[in-house]
Amino acid sequence: MDLNTKFTPKSWPDHAEQATLEGKNKFVGIWIFICSDIVLFASVFATYLSLKDSGPAGMDIKASELFGLELAFVMTMLLLTSSLTSVYAMYHMKNYNFKGVQLWMGITVLLGLGFLGLEIYEFYEYTVHEGFGFTHSAFSSAFYVLVGTHGLHVIIGLVWITGLIIRNAKRGLNLYNAPKYFASSIYWHFIDVIWVFIFTVVYLMGVLG
């Protein structure tokens, strides 16, 4: 594969991310990875549900009193929107508009950072002000590991996308980096998929008790 092949919007292939064998491999590969991540999150999730509200005798913190919905709502909106912006980036990639790709990927990163900031704030609040630290109870351990694993995925996604933006800033789209952008965007959507379950099961159903 030649990095120097120059494309125009007219010669840019329809499925540029799958035009080369490496691209196909990356596409199938990221999906298989996501499949294994599904089981990973299922295990953490199921553990959280079975340890919810359980702690040492006389524990007074309950999910229904601990969780607030305002923060979760804002975080959900941020992450959902970042999913849309990365779709926009892929739309511009199809049209061979590199500036559009970089811009929308950049916005995705900013929204992701906003989400991450709020999550850290939330953890800080629970740990310091509510006395709900990591070692407080089985419930707290399971909560932090579940939401924290998702947060770790967000961090990895952010580093990945930022790396792509910086690395390719000066050279434009080609068949070598198109699959990378595409794979990172699929990964980012997957993070959103997990969050849909987290806000539904942890926060909304947590508040219900």
């Binding site: 079975s50 702690g55 109870s137 351990s141």
Partner: peptide, 15 residues
């Protein structure tokens, strides 16, 4: 120091 399997802290070894 987490408590996934420690029953005195609400954990569950069957997990």
């Amino acid at each position: 120091g987490s408590n996934f399997f420690d029953h005195t802290m609400g954990g569950n070894t069957v997990i």
